[in-house]
Design a protein around this nucleic acid. Structure first.
Lengths: 223, 223
DNA sequence: ACATGATACTCCCTTTGGAAGTAAGATGTT
DNA sequence: AACATCTTACTTCCAAAGGGAGTATCATGT
């Protein structure tokens, strides 16, 4: 009656258990607040996942009583810690993105200029809302009051990616809106700018060729 | 015997049909080459989707014969075009990202410094490989030879986002590697830099506050 | 006392991923 | 010409996952 082999989601939950024991409700909350930004999972599945970990011997469950209510707390096992370490030995897959607003921009010619502008505005709003959610969390860490401060070496890396991703969405949507503003009302009559294409090609070319340059930090500091 | 209501994937396929009729195999190829970068879908589902469109009256199927082999070609209907236009009237959801390598960085303390560096190197490789795939496509468009050049007003917008996303992954992974290089062998003994946290906060703060600035284009040109 | 929100889950049905498979045509190699 | 390999053109199957709807109990607000 053993369930299928552990998935990446299994390891995500196991990784949280490596920090401390969590109740299943707390796990869903914690995923929603942090990991869900880079590995989003439905709540129902988050309740199932720890049970699978227990089946595999990677975690233990204990039940607590609060009046008529029970709460299940999960704790990582030594086998779980070893499994996590083994999982970390393989680099994992690159990012997968699903961007519905961009999909709509891709098919703009089937709608109106106003549709496209509204979509780009919504993308901007999305990015800002994400940053607005992140800010107080970051500020709490800066004040020395964030959760699990011993994890800040990792958190500084992951939060930088997440924030920059939001900024990418925001800046792209703003830039794209300046272009779509110049479109005629019928998107089918829009024209493109060869310099935009050329700039995009130049950026991709630099990435492919920049194998030898360790300029990452310089670039980031100077932004 | 009507299937469930159209999904975003349905509209993605319908959008491709709005450009021209496609056989189901061609649809899978085209998704793999272009739309799959921002709306990835499994091949098996891509074969199913056009059948659903036909069920809903949004497309028509016709069968062609090639020796003993048949091929099914799908064509959008007028109802399909209207449905697509209606779908475009609603802005859609912001991006969802699943980044397994970043998840592993998040749990670095359970592995070794070398694990983390390998993961960051793999992320760089991923980004470069994606740019290397995109380059010849972009260059073909620059030479005036790309597919569906009448769609270049849209393509210039979407390809910019996609390329900049790859660059984000590449530059972040390089920058993160410079930091992880300074870590001790045991990641649990690593320290963080408060300036990094502060910079991330500053970036998020600017995004939330920059409601009034239309600096998108300037920023992009100056990069 | 009652309403509302939070805690703490479960169930259900649809969508989706991806591996494995089948079949026939086209091209390459000997 | 025979065979191998790749491409075209799909289908099937089972596991993973999404998300809505639901139940029950505690805690807080009015």
């Amino acid at each position: 009656m053993s369930r299928g082999s552990p998935t990446t989601t299994s390891y995500a939950v196991l990784g949280l258990l490596s920090i401390k024991p969590w109740s299943s409700y707390e796990l869903t909350q914690q995923m929603d607040r942090s990991l869900g930004r880079i590995w989003p999972r439905a709540v129902s599945k988050l309740y199932e996942e720890p049970k699978k970990l227990v089946d595999h011997g990677l975690a233990r469950a204990s039940t607590e009583q609060n009046g008529q209510r029970t709460r299940t707390v999960y704790t990582i096992t030594a086998k779980g810690r070893r499994a996590l370490a083994t999982w970390l030995q393989h680099p994992g897959e690159g990012p997968v993105i699903e961007f519905e607003q961009l999909l709509k921009v891709f098919f703009s010619e089937n709608g109106t200029k106003a549709d496209t502008l509204a979509t780009l505005l919504a993308a901007q709003g999305w990015a800002r809302a994400r940053c607005a959610e992140s800010l107080p969390v970051g500020e709490r860490y800066a004040e020395g009051e964030g959760l699990f401060p011993e994890r800040l070496p990792e958190l500084q890396l992951t939060s930088r990616f997440i924030t920059d991703f939001y900024l990418l969405v925001l800046n792209w949507a703003r830039w794209a809106a300046t272009i779509v503003e110049t479109w005629p009302d019928d998107p089918r009559q829009a024209t493109y700018e060869s310099e935009v294409i050329a700039e995009t090609i130049a950026r991709a070319r630099r990435a492919v060729k920049d194998d030898k340059t360790e300029a990452g930090e310089t670039r980031h500091v100077k932004d």
